[in-house]
Amino acid sequence: MASVVIYTRQFCGYCSAAKKLLETKGVKFLEHDATYAPDIRQQMIERSNGGTTFPQIFINNAHVGGCDDLHALERAGKLDAMLAA
């Protein structure tokens, strides 16, 4: 199973939707809540090459993007292969 990391913040509908998709697939992920942690937010921005919106998602250290990007991978039939790697 792939290593999945997701940077989130509280009260973020996109964060909830991304986590729900991963959970329905049975994917375990490491969540970094940046709500009150500017250092975690800065780490996310650097790791995602400037991504400032939430969530920011990484699969096997590859930046996937946000919630819309994750769902686009699912619709294209590419997400399962990434998660299986």
Rank of each mutant, 00 (worst) to 15 (best):
L21R: 00
L21T: 01
L21H: 00
L22C: 00
L22Q: 01
L22N: 02
L22I: 00
L22V: 02
L22E: 01
E23F: 05
E23C: 06
E23N: 08
E23R: 09
E23Q: 12
E23A: 09
E23T: 09
T24L: 11
T24N: 14
K25E: 01
K25P: 03
G26M: 03
G26A: 05
G26C: 04
G26D: 04
G26R: 05
G26V: 05
G26Q: 03
V27S: 03
V27W: 02
V27Q: 04
K28Q: 15
K28S: 15
K28W: 07
K28I: 14
K28M: 13
K28Y: 11
F29A: 02
F29Y: 14
L30E: 15
L30H: 13
L30N: 13
L30S: 13
L30I: 15
L30W: 09
L30D: 15
E31M: 07
E31G: 10
E31P: 09
E31R: 09
E31F: 08
H32K: 15
H32P: 07
H32Q: 10
H32Y: 14
H32M: 10
D33L: 12
D33N: 15
D33E: 12
A34E: 07
A34Y: 10
A34L: 10
A34P: 08
A34H: 09
A34T: 12
A34F: 07
T35S: 10
T35M: 05
T35W: 06
Y36Q: 13
Y36V: 13
A37P: 07
A37N: 15
A37H: 13
A37D: 15
A37R: 15
A37T: 13
P38T: 10
P38R: 10
P38K: 10
P38L: 10
D39R: 11
D39P: 08
D39S: 14
D39E: 15
I40Q: 05
I40K: 08
I40P: 06
I40N: 06
I40A: 06
R41A: 14
R41C: 10
R41V: 11
R41M: 14
R41D: 13
R41W: 13
Q42A: 15
Q42N: 13
Q42M: 11
Q42P: 07
Q42H: 12
Q42W: 08
Q43W: 07
Q43C: 06
Q43G: 05
M44N: 02
M44S: 01
M44H: 03
I45W: 02
I45Q: 03
I45S: 01
I45N: 00
E46W: 07
E46F: 07
E46N: 13
E46R: 12
E46M: 11
R47Y: 02
R47N: 05
R47A: 04
S48Q: 02
S48P: 02
S48F: 02
S48H: 00
N49D: 11
N49I: 08
N49H: 10
N49W: 05
G50L: 03
G50I: 02
G50R: 02
